[in-house]
Design a binder for these strands. Structure first.
Lengths: 346, 346
DNA sequence: GACAAAGATGAAAGCGTGTTCATTCTTGAT
DNA sequence: ATCAAGAATGAACACGCTTTCATCTTTGTC
């Protein structure tokens, strides 16, 4: 209670501001609420006094009465992953501009969801939740959050996911993988690649499943052989090892399609630094995501890109719309992918 | 008020749990507070009912009365930076285990501090604040946070920083750069390097200043020439360009000391892919941080490391101690650095 | 079996804010 | 000058929880 007293002394309350400005406490509240009716000059005076006293409305108290926490929860398995950190950065910036703060929760790397974490998170009463863990069905999340909090799952699939969550209505941000993959396959085919390997991401990942499925479909459409599928987990080391196995134990390949850029880096390094093969002359490599490192000269990776800014804009728009109209019909946004051509194909 | 009603219907309150379990609301509160006195069987019964009703204590309400938000604010300029994302990830994991959630705030990349952001952040009443922006003096932060919230600034300097914040007492986590730099210089000298360049980080960065100062000091102690100092900003692209300039406009160097690993990557790529020089034969390169990418085969970087886990453990310990004893004397922890030898020196 | 000490319990007060609702003040048209 | 309509105002309540305090129950000891 010692610190309690300190804090009380340190932080000004609306009551103190009211007394100092010779107005009622209600007026102070209104001064900080733009659409409340208050004489402009009075508002200015109150805001001035508030600034002098270094006063800020207490979000906890405000949240208690309004039901809005101005907090957006993000459930993340690995902040270190370039793709995720990129996404977190952009989302936090955009949400902050709209008055929301990011509340970060980490889940285990194996994507297993700790129920206690969800319970704990709900205690903070986030206005919205963005989940980066692609294998968590929103039903699970909805159950924990009592279906009162809008949830967005960042993933790259369409039908598969919608099916898994049948019965639950929610806003969706869809990514059409087809365009980018088609462009990549056309390019590979043009350079004469015939034996294509798909270096997978996490087995449970829906994005991975959808990328693999779309690749197979596209190859079939063009009359090419089905891809050799290698297991992976989106990490550099696993991709490195898988590539070694492909060429030492297996029969190699003309081209490698990696489920993400980091995996592509692992493949490239294995080819160049351990197998003595050159990229793109001996083996062509294509990645997914277009993370910032993809343009580094050591890799200079040709990769399928989902425009980050566009995606973040769409997601923030979805979140804000849902908060303003909680009972509106579910929205759906669809984004496209395209190939970024660099030096690892031709 | 529609969503309000929904939410009310969705989230159970302590009152409802109390009624369902036939106890007083106070008992429910005690059931969730481990050190409150309550008959064990009664507690179990309450917790069981709570689970059935999917009840979680509301953190906002709890925060209001206890003065503890269980929120730790993190002020971050660039989540995408491997070093920062690494640190955020580890801190979030460790704090989460102690019952704290991470509240993320982004500041502009040029490190300029938006005062409105600080005000806004204070509204959330974080129990502690960790700032990654090395050039923000804690005085500024303290002023905004009313000196009631413990603040930790992640930086790598010692005296310089302490001087800048004279008069303010605060806990400190210090990093001794000397060890790692000395090991690196010894290694470089052993391989015959004589002309050493220092590829700087952000000009305002205290970590950068301290690394540069320590490098100069170490070179002088060993009777070596002062380093050629190049301006940088911790980014790949700037490091790349600076390295080109060093060899095309300037007279080149035997070895490059980069202020961070990402900068070292830029230097290596410029040397290998544009200047036609080989690393380490023609030019040796040393980095700072030992981020995960440093072991990727394309770089295989020799670098000075501050043990992340050790650092996070120390920081979390500091935070917890300060929260338990707000009036205790300031603590100080000091960490060491050491050289991780890989393939870019000899 | 009596008594003190310790533990368990619930009523009430309060944390800092937003929001009703009834009242007062202002404005502009007649 | 008068009146209605609208804007501005403040008292009171509510949000969901913890904590104090006084009361009641259990436990241990001689």
């Amino acid at each position: 209670m010692n610190d309690r007293a300190e804090k009380k002394a340190a932080r000004a309350t609306a009551d103190q501001v009211a007394r100092a400005a010779n107005v009622s406490r209600v007026a102070v509240s209104r001064a900080f609420n733009p659409n409340a009716s208050l004489k402009p000059e009075k508002r200015d005076r109150i805001l001035k006094v508030a600034r002098e006293l270094n006063y800020t409305p207490d979000m906890a108290a405000r949240s208690l009465v309004t039901g809005r926490s101005h907090l957006v929860g993000m459930i993340v398995p690995d902040v270190c992953s370039p793709w995720e950190s990129q996404e977190i950065d952009a989302l936090t910036t955009a949400l902050q501009a709209e008055g929301f703060a990011t509340l970060l929760f980490k889940v285990k790397a194996d994507f297993s969801m700790d129920p206690r974490l969800l319970t704990y998170m709900r205690g903070f009463n986030p206005d919205s939740v963005i989940a980066f863990t692609e294998n968590i069905l929103p039903d699970v999340l909805c159950g924990f959050l009592d279906r009162a909090v809008p949830i967005y799952v960042i993933y790259d699939d369409v039908e598969q996911f919608a099916g898994a969550a049948s019965g639950t209505l929610y806003d969706r941000l869809l990514v059409r993988q087809k365009n980018g993959i088609e462009q990549a396959v056309a390019l590979l085919q043009g350079y004469g690649a015939r034996r294509i390997a798909y270096l997978g991401g996490k087995a449970q990942s829906l994005a991975n499943a959808e990328r693999e499925r779309t690749l197979k479909e596209t190859l079939a459409e063009r009359g090419m052989d089905a891809p050799i599928v290698l297991a992976g987990d989106y990490t550099y080391d696993t991709a490195y090892q898988a590539t070694l196995d492909l060429f030492r134990v297996g029969d190699g390949a003309d081209a490698i399609f990696a489920a993400n850029d980091v995996g592509a880096f692992g493949a490239i390094d294995a080819l160049r630094h351990e197998l003595g093969l050159s990229v793109p002359e001996d083996v062509k490599v294509v990645g997914f995501d277009d993370i910032p490192q993809a343009h580094w000269k050591s890799y200079n990776l040709t990769t399928v890109r989902i425009d980050l800014e566009e995606r973040v804009r769409a997601l923030v728009r979805l979140i804000l719309m849902r908060l303003r109209a909680p009972d509106a019909e579910p929205f759906t946004e669809t984004l496209n992918t395209r190939l970024i051509v660099r030096g690892t194909v031709g």
